[in-house]
Amino acid sequence: MKHIITVQVENKPGVLARVSSMFARRGFNIHSLTVGPSVEPDQSRMTVVVDGPEMEQIVKQLRKMINTVKVTELAPGEGIEREVILVRVSSSAAQRGELLDAASIFDARAADVGPSSITFEIADSPERCNDFLSLISPYGIIELVKSGRIALRKDGRGESHPGAAAPSGLKAIGS
């Protein structure tokens, strides 16, 4: 089961290195990690997708880092999840029409069309992105790049992690 952790960090030099070093040192696997500016000008927001049973330790170790302001876990279904994919798929002139049809079903856009390939862009939930890739893979995927997942909590799904202060007790995590 993949879990999403969003991490609000002070925007200080090397903070990404700190986080990734901690993951490496503790032996936690990262499925994807994205980082960018947040609504607070002096803070960045990371979205980390992790795989594995160590969720609770990962959240605690992130909270323990001095530059971490806030750590939130999104249980499956609690967040709006998106990723962006650029994919170049092999396409003869004859195949172009059917590929474009398939793309339109998934709201994927042809970003570049060449004599022997089409590059699609799609920004959607990870499930829809994967469905699209499955659909076009028989044509032959030449190159692929994924942005990594970003996520926001859905409105009304409860903010269960107020502030960065470590709560007493296990129950506070993911409850």
Binding site: Q57, K60, K64, P167, S168, G169, L170
Partner: peptide, 16 residues
Amino acid sequence: DPAEIGKIRVPDVPIV
């Protein structure tokens, strides 16, 4: 240190 709690042994009562 909250990260020590449950790291090796899950306690019945954790107190940070």
